[in-house]
Design a protein around this nucleic acid. Structure first.
Lengths: 254, 254
DNA sequence: AATGCCTGTTGCACAGATTGCAACAGAGCT
DNA sequence: AGCTCTGTTGCAATCTGTGCAACAGGCATT
């Protein structure tokens, strides 16, 4: 809607691919070098891009700080976290929390005490939306037309032979998931990894988040993982209860 | 430099404080509501802001993805990570990696296997620049005028009685740190936490990053922590060697 | 139940900011 | 030393962004 801002913001994903110099940025934006320079300057003043010693531009530090603060005012995450930790303690597996936003599903929390994994390599990363158990739950709850439109807009990469192959198959899966109130991903993303997931609902019953437990086949088989389903659902329900019970925004209640 | 972009970007830190509606955004920007609306729309199209169900705006998902990719392009981090893990395994304490950028120091990696801490609560967060051991190392290496200018621009909050109190004291500390080639923070940020840090240098000898080991007093005293110094320095030197040995950019070598 | 207020949204004309050009500067390389 | 390449600045034309005012829709109040 605003050309200048649009151009400026287009620089960010471009730089996300790697550092670039002025000429490259100008070319890929399709604007004059001087224009690109001015946009980059403005981005720089706000700390969103950084000019490294070789004069090339790169994404800047403020971006981290913003993403940081953004994740910190997601109230679902705050409420859910202790529950995730407790679940992790009792089963030992990786626990994820994810939300849906504008056609993307992303992890907003993760607990994995067994292996010291680099946590930031996951949080914030968009999820494999067509196969992940949490994605199924979040999308299954969308209103019919929106869900259909999204399903048909998606790509269906065959990560493994068990990946969801097409929009119709995906929509069928979503119907099933909505019906049963939980979801799985059995080797659909990575051959040897299975997940079980359950939805977190707000006061109005809408799904606001989804949580999952993941484990590699070598640790527990799919059957064994499924025995955790009741525990996962109970945890999700506990979060739902707490989330819809309180209104943690600052508006004073009656 | 570019008014429109400047205004649009000013919205981001504003929303970082918490969700806001159109009117609030317009007020705080000092522009007409319609203008704010258009800016927000553009930000929305790029996924940087998200409109939640109550119509208020909040920072968006793309921000995570960008910060994500940004951190993945930092080659120091990639090289350093295994070393940090190894150091953590041998001493058991929290290990940090930090870089300096435009007057800010921020953590870009952290390993803490003992306590399952929420990792993202730190990575990307600006460091207490006047007291942190890693900050001292990074700033001590700046050219004299720049260092002086920065030191005088900073605030010197007294987190504890041992915090750096003023610019002159800070500059003196930086001189000492540069001299000895390592740094400490003994309860300067939080009363009961001590850190030892060492610099990572590029091929030209400039400090490109700094790493530290932190531990609370109740686990090991300051004296005991200092016995780790040789190990920390060796680790940092190992990273420096590997970092300056390779040029991991795509420019083909001879 | 109807009214009034408040928030978000659109069309339009003006003003002013942004754009591309061309000329300049400075570094790095042949 | 000359050359080219990249980054940088001043300027005028114009296109874009801005604020205004009117509209729409929802919520709470009368």
């Amino acid at each position: 809607m605003s050309q200048t801002v649009d151009r400026a913001l287009s620089i960010l994903p471009l730089l996300a691919e790697g550092p670039a110099d002025l000429g490259q940025v100008a070319d890929r934006l399709g604007v004059h070098k001087s224009t690109a320079l001015r946009l980059l300057r403005t981005l720089h003043e706000h700390g969103l891009v950084y000019r490294q010693s070789d004069q090339r531009y790169r994404l800047g530090a403020r971006l981290f700080a913003l993403a940081q603060e953004a994740v910190e005012n997601l109230d679902v995450r705050e409420i859910a976290h202790p529950h995730l930790v407790r679940l992790n303690e009792s089963c030992g597996h990786t626990v994820h929390l994810a939300v849906h936003e504008d056609g993307e599903v992303l992890y907003i929390d993760k607990v994995d005490s067994r292996y010291p994994v680099r946590m930031y390599s996951r949080i914030g990363k968009p999820v494999a939306i067509t196969v992940a158990a949490v994605a199924k739950l979040l999308l299954a709850d969308l209103p019919e037309p929106e869900r259909r439109a999204l399903a048909e807009k998606l790509d269906y990469p065959m990560y493994t032979s068990r990946s969801t192959p097409s929009a119709p198959a995906f929509l069928r899966e979503l119907d099933k998931v909505r019906e049963q109130g939980w979801a799985t991903d059995l080797g659909g993303h990575e051959e040897s990894i299975n997940c079980v997931a359950a939805p977190v609902r707000g006061a109005d019953g809408r799904v606001v988040a989804a949580m999952s437990v993941s484990a590699p086949n070598v640790v527990v088989g799919a059957d064994e993982l499924l025995t955790l389903l009741p525990l996962v659902r109970r945890t999700a329900d506990a979060i739902s209860g707490e989330y819809s019970g309180k209104t943690p925004t600052k508006e004073a209640g009656p």
